[in-house]
Amino acid sequence: MNRSHFPFLLNTLTTISMVFAIWMVFLWVPTETNQGAVQRILYIHVPIAWGAMVSICIVAVASILYLHNRSAKWDRIAVSSAEAGAIFGSMMLFSGMMWARPVWGVFWTGEAKLVTTLILFLLFVAYLMFRNYFPEGIQQKKIAAVIGIIGAIDTPVIYFAANLWERAHPPLVTGPASDGDSLLSGSIELTLFVSAVAFSLLLFSLINLRYSVHKSEDAVNLFYRNSSIESNTL
């Protein structure tokens, strides 16, 4: 495959699968009897949450590889993935709240998964803020990689702790579907799967787009640094 065709193929695939997923979510899958129309939020919420988890894993792997061989490529992948992860994380929180309000009766409870995802989102924010505030250079990239690794290790630990804590305090959940034992039938599962594929592809195309922007910017910055021309455009 020609390398320059890769982004185009990825974006086209994303578009097609996304349109197909939206068709399935709105037209194909039947409404769940338990929660009604609002249950369709889950077809966007669950894949986005999955995307956020995938992106923290990508950040961690890219960070380890960066510390291992110091290639700027891995650092770019880590930043791009963290940015996409922050967007996915905020959307995950938002869609989760919008689902919880009609179904649980509250926007937010101290439930294990909620606490974990909020902290995951904060870690993404901290990572990106750090990159913005630290003077640019090798040092910045190395420390950012350390933050990425610690964040990825911390996430399952936080989940474990929050689970342990939740068992001590049963969550105060009110509303009709507080039990949440609805029937996850075949069509719901299939729609969720297609939607997850579509959102994973969206995640990869966002990372890819951000990566190429970053790469071009690095090239231009390198040129300016070497020729010591003051740039007003950047």
Partner: peptide, 25 residues
């Protein structure tokens, strides 16, 4: 890590507090 950051007063808590939240629990 954060001692050289411009906004270290916010940067350190922002990294530190989420990471230690299980321990606080």
């Amino acid at each position: 890590m954060t001692v050289r950051v411009r906004a270290k007063e916010i940067m350190l808590p922002l990294l530190f507090l989420p990471a230690i939240s299980p321990l606080l629990l």
